[in-house]
Design a protein around this nucleic acid. Structure first.
Length: 849
RNA sequence: GGGCGAUUAGCUCAGCGGGAGAGCGCUGCCUUCACACGGCAGAGGUCGCUGGUUCGAACCCAGCAUCGCCCACCA
């Protein structure tokens, strides 16, 4: 192939599919335990099988793929293990909604078995879609090792873990207030509740005295308490006041009536009550409020439950039975008003919990659930984080996670759902309770609940490697090298993996955690389907190519969240095009392979390359992707393409053909982890037989460092730019004669600046241009002379400013005394250089006047 | 109520103790043999505000303002 046959732009559509197939055909991503290589392993945060991948997945995929490909090229046995999550509650929600929409049915209409089958089928479809998306991204995962949390082996891991924790006394069954979602008819954990500030009302509720002792201290014949949820009044079992509240000393011990349900309750005291809130009287509803539950327990009172699982009122609600909770609220308020028991109603702003998955208002509700004791599990995790056995980028998240673990609550792991891992607990005919993977025998009934989806996720880093079997994979790849994730699941997932990893393996699950940005919509708000502001990564891949999108995402990724902008994909695409055309140039350029004597410009680009390799590699190692992209982009575009290719055209050395190719190949290899398709194609076009994916990642080579060449070329480039600038401003065209004082690469300068170097300039008219510490003099026509005087004056006043600034600093004794020597000597050098320059300029000005 | 973070060029964002940066957008010139998804040259910023530390602060400290996010059982 030659350059003329190549189109001017890279066509990702024609390339990506073919190259991915080639990688797969060659088994390029397959990793197995090996004796002569060190392991590198990343397990993918398994996407939910609820639908398609979003931009967050694309970003995290780009990050992980970059790291894995780099490790692979560095000679590690690099495994990126793919998988998907069954997403218990999330998937069940999606399928339920679909069921209602398409068939007008609920899960109860279908029955458990049929419903679970529907979920399984849906998951299957979603899963294949997701896997296709990962391929489009270019994910270098080992497909042979694809895992799913509902695989038979994985289910065994999950149930085994539950049984073991149960047997160690770390799992117990408890009756307490949980967050109840009436739509899902299931409990959810604290982490699955989203609180939103809401404008609501605070209702004064009046409880008439029934003890016949007459009115209360305030002259009223009732006691009043405030509530935001008046319907829970029907479940009240007591009123309480603070024991130190003198206003109510007489109230304690009196009996009042709960309206409508006609229940007599007593007034007690409890320290919990804040006398300054409302009336200082608190109603106690143990079945519907966590604090009330505790107060009720302290007082030894039986809770009264007034709700059904679906959020309607039950028979204990008396006349309100059968109403939805919202209807009951309105009805209770109305009826209270009618009977004169409604007190003050205030506007009140408070936080209402919503189900993370379906948005339904959460009801704190008394139920019996399975709990994991977290304190004991958290301790080793806290220690590991404190000792930095796990490195977190950025470190602030390590400290945050420690704080969270220190305040951890027990974890409710049972869900009254159908899709998921069914809890391996069996209830026997004689009331036996047995935790076991299989039924203990005839007459045993299995617990109907399933496990919180995060329970299975918590085992991910080792269950995917075969645990509880002591597999070779587990021995070789565990602990994994790095986990990359969004911060929103640090507690839900990452912290729990650390605890479970330490519990079941006695080792941390990963050495590093990268907490990446959240990709926001273009307007800076969160992307969400309901707002309709989501961006489909596949559309971006189609339009810009996977490499361009990957580069753009990494370029924008930092520890800060960022609003996605299409400009970043355009930036990536332009970069690919630039590299593509550099490929065409390199291809068309002579193909001499032998090494001959290198010129300063050859040594300069090699030295710059060397610096770039060190810097870029370090940044990737530290997950500083944005900075890494800037470094490699700057080198490839602003040094290599803008300058070295131009030098190769205009002032090549005998070594240039070789150096040009070497440096360009190094760029392709450095970029391969980020832009795998395009770089692979470019290497192919340039006639490489071996795939880049298996090539060695460039390493720094100190022998290529050449400070002298760097200084020389920097000065030369500056001189060239100065002349170009002068040409643009003065509208001068054609070859000029010129003289440079100060050391530059004359050949390069002359060729790129279009200046013929002469020893001495004829005539008196010259432009005197400053290029850093070098002075360039250019022959000048008479008509430009007038302007030159103006220009000189401006230049002089600028340099005078510089001189004054340096003098000022250096005459400050404290500066000379306390600033580092190199800073002071730097100022001195600048001062003397500028003084010399000023002399030259002044002399020239005098000549003209 | 606590905690964390942000505030830098018109826009999106880097920089985090020694003379303000990138991409896009904008202006001028260039359709010359890698590339107009381009080249060359430019314009554009009292780095949120007020104090402090320092020879020196966009960068460190304190306070304030605005905007986010996380955590917390005040009815």
């Amino acid at each position: 192939m030659n350059e003329a046959e190549l189109p001017k732009t890279y066509d990702h559509r024609a390339v990506e599919g073919r190259i991915y197939a080639e990688w797969e055909r060659r088994g390029a991503f397959e990793a197995d335990p090996s004796h002569d290589k060190d392991p590198y392993c990343i397990v993918i945060p398994p996407p939910n099988v609820t639908g398609a991948l979003h931009m967050g997945h694309a970003l995290n995929g780009a990050i992980q793929d970059t790291l894995v490909r780099r490790a692979r090229m560095k000679g590690y046995e690099a495994l990126w293990l793919p998988g998907v999550d069954h997403a218990s509650i999330a998937l069940q929600n999606v399928v339920e909604r679909k069921l209602v929409r398409e068939e007008g049915k609920t899960r109860w209409d279908l029955g458990r078995e049929e419903f679970v089958e529907r979920c399984r089928v849906f998951a299957e479809e979603s899963r294949s879609q997701i896997l296709g998306q990962l391929k489009r991204l270019g994910a270098s995962v080992d497909w042979r090792r694809l895992r799913y949390t509902m695989d038979e082996a994985y289910i065994d891991s999950v149930l085994g873990a539950f049984v073991e924790l149960y047997e160690r006394g770390l799992i117990y069954r408890g009756y307490r207030i949980t967050n109840w979602c009436p739509r899902d008819r299931s409990a959810i954990s604290e982490l699955e509740v989203n609180y939103e500030e809401t404008n609501g009302k605070l209702y004064g509720l009046r409880y008439p005295f029934v003890d016949g002792k007459g009115p209360g201290p305030d002259g009223n014949d009732f006691a009043q308490a405030f509530s935001t949820r008046p319907e829970t009044m029907l479940g009240d079992v007591a009123l309480v006041v603070n024991p130190d509240d003198e206003r109510y000393a007489d109230l304690v011990g009196r009996r009042v009536m709960v309206p409508f349900v006609e229940r007599e309750i007593e007034v007690f005291t409890d320290e919990y009550v804040d006398p300054s809130f409302g009336t200082g009287v608190l109603k106690v509803t143990p079945a519907h409020d966590p604090n009330d539950f505790e107060i009720g327990a302290r007082l030894g009172l039986e809770p009264v439950n007034v709700l059904n699982p679906d959020g309607t009122m039950n028979q204990a609600a008396g006349p309100f039975e059968g109403m939805k909770r919202e209807e009951a609220r309105a009805a209770v308020v109305e009826r209270l008003g009618e009977v004169g028991l409604l007190g003050e109603v205030r506007d009140y702003r408070y936080r209402v919990g919503h189900c993370d998955r379906c948005g339904t208002v959460i009801e704190p509700w008394l139920t019996e659930q399975w709990w994991v004791s977290m304190r004991e599990l958290a301790e080793p995790a806290i220690r590991a984080l404190e000792k930095k056995e796990i490195i977190v980028y950025p470190d602030s998240w390590r400290r945050e996670t420690i704080r969270w673990l220190e305040n951890i609550h027990d974890w409710n792991v049972s869900r009254q759902l159908w899709w998921g891992h069914r809890i391996p607990v069996w209830y026997g005919p004689e009331g036996e309770v047995v935790a076991s993977m299989e039924s203990p025998g005839e007459g045993y009934e299995q617990d109907p609940d399933v496990l919180d989806t995060w329970f299975s996720s918590a085992l991910w880093p080792f269950a995917t490697l075969g645990w509880p079997e002591e597999t070779e994979d587990l021995a070789y790849f565990y602990p994994t090298s790095l986990l990359s994730t969004a911060r929103e699941i640090m507690y839900l997932w990452v912290a729990r993996m650390i605890m479970m990893g330490l519990r079941f393996r006695g080792e941390i699950p990963f050495e590093k955690v990268n907490v990446h940005s959240i990709v926001l919509a273009e307007d800076g708000t969160k992307m969400s389907k309901s707002k309709g502001n989501t961006i489909d990564p596949l559309d971006l891949f189609d339009e810009y190519g996977a490499d361009a999108v990957r580069f753009g995402l990494l370029y924008q990724s930092s520890t800060q969240d960022f609003a996605y902008s299409y400009e970043r994909a355009e930036l990536g695409r332009s970069f690919v095009t630039k590299l593509w055309n550099a490929t065409r140039f390199v291809l068309a350029y002579t193909r001499v392979e032998e090494v001959r004597e290198a010129s300063p410009s050859d040594r300069w680009i090699l030295s710059e390359l060397n610096r770039t390799i060190s810097e870029y590699d370090r940044l990737l190692e530290e997950c500083e992707f944005s900075e890494a992209m800037r470094v490699i982009y700057g080198f490839a575009w602003n040094q290599f393409a803008d300058w070295y290719i131009e030098i190769a055209k205009a002032a090549p050395s005998p070594a240039t053909p070789h150096v040009l190719r070497e440096v360009f190949f190094a760029i392709l290899k450095l970029l391969h982890p980020v832009m795998p398709f395009a770089t692979e194609e470019m290497a192919h076009v340039l006639g490489e037989d071996e795939l880049l994916v298996r090539r060695r990642f460039p390493e720094p080579d100190r022998s290529l460092e050449d400070r002298e060449a760097e200084v020389l070329l920097d000065r030369t480039k500056r001189a060239v730019s100065t002349v170009r600038s002068f040409r643009a401003e003065s509208k001068v065209e054609g070859t000029l004669e010129g003289r440079v004082s100060g050391e530059v690469d004359l050949e390069v300068f002359s060729a790129l600046a279009g200046v013929r170097p002469v020893e001495a300039l004829d005539g008196s008219a010259k432009a005197t241009l400053l290029a850093g510490d070098a002075v360039v003099e250019i022959s000048l026509t008479d008509e430009l002379r007038r302007g030159e005087i103006e220009r000189l004056r401006k230049e002089i006043s600028r340099v005078e400013g510089e001189v004054a600034r340096a003098r000022g600093k250096l005459s400050n004794e404290k500066f000379v005394e306390r600033a580092p020597v190199e800073v002071v000597s730097g100022e001195r050098e600048k001062l003397s250089a500028n003084t010399r320059v000023l002399e030259t300029l002044n002399r020239r000005l005098e000549e003209y006047l």
